[in-house]
């Protein structure tokens, strides 16, 4: 089953996707930091929602992202 990596609420009107810490095909565990987004003054980690393999990246560096947006998918 695929589980979405969702950007949590950051309290900022907008955020910019910064980087992925993992590549498609990499194994991840729930709670691992898999990506990073930027709001003015802060770099915020995004965590894996489940154990599995990152199968898809849906956001890329410099993309403008917002809370609730799907950044990628983990296959359990």
């Amino acid at each position: 089953m695929k589980v979405a990596v969702v950007l949590p609420e950051l309290g900022a009107a907008r955020a910019t996707f910064s980087l992925w810490h993992v590549r498609p095909g990499d194994r991840v565990f729930e709670g691992d930091r898999v990506a990073e987004v930027l709001i003015p003054g802060a770099a915020v980690d995004v965590h894996a929602p489940a154990d599995g393999v990152l199968v898809e990246q849906a956001a890329f560096p410099q993309d403008v992202v917002s809370a609730g947006q799907v950044l990628g998918w983990v296959e359990e």
């Binding site: 709670g31 003015p40 003054g41 802060a42 770099a43 915020v44 980690d45 965590h47």
Partner: peptide
């Protein structure tokens, strides 16, 4: 300073801010 987070006094920056949220 909303554009470049930090603190300004008399138009010049007196403190700069840069944070990270890890775990």
């Amino acid at each position: 300073d909303p554009d470049r987070p930090g603190v300004r006094a008399n138009g010049r920056r007196v403190a700069h801010l840069g944070v990270a949220v890890r775990g």
